[in-house]
Amino acid sequence: MNEKKQLTLYVDTRRCMGCRACEIACKLENDLPRGPRYTMVTETEVIEDGVDKLKFLPVPCQHCADAPCLKACPTGAIYKRADGIVMVNKKKCIGCHECLWSCPFGVPQYGADGKMQKCTMCAFRQDHGEKPACAAACPAEAILVGSPEEISATLRNRYGAEASHTNTTRMAGKPVK
């Protein structure tokens, strides 16, 4: 009756402010040594309207609907769950790195055993009713997990009012009390 739909992990980049709590929360949750970084926060310098700014983008696995890594894997070690999470069966992985060369986001990591490991959207946590570790950790509450409808509702709640705000800059003359 309850069909498990693809869950989305959405990063609200308007909110991500580059604290990197998600990176270490992920390491802790997955009990990772130094080496594999399931999620990584990128930092890009931009000039926006003449102003120097930093833009942050955490890049965990996107769990693509049409995953290039899955198609590239020669042994079929990469598979997609019914709820859309892309997983690796380490027993089948031969550590050939094809997944890394085909992933546009550079997500696959390789552990000490040479086999591929990566973000699982905390499938194990989700199976136990918890949010992914990065989403729970984020102090800015920038990482949203849920169905597209749920995420859309949150975003509308956050930003929908923006369009209707009057311009609050300068009201010349008297101060506003």
Binding site: T42, G106, Y110
Partner: peptide
Amino acid sequence: EPAQSSVERRSSYAEKRQ
């Protein structure tokens, strides 16, 4: 190292995205 390559890919994707 593949890890370094992964970092570069993620960064270059983020740059393109801007």
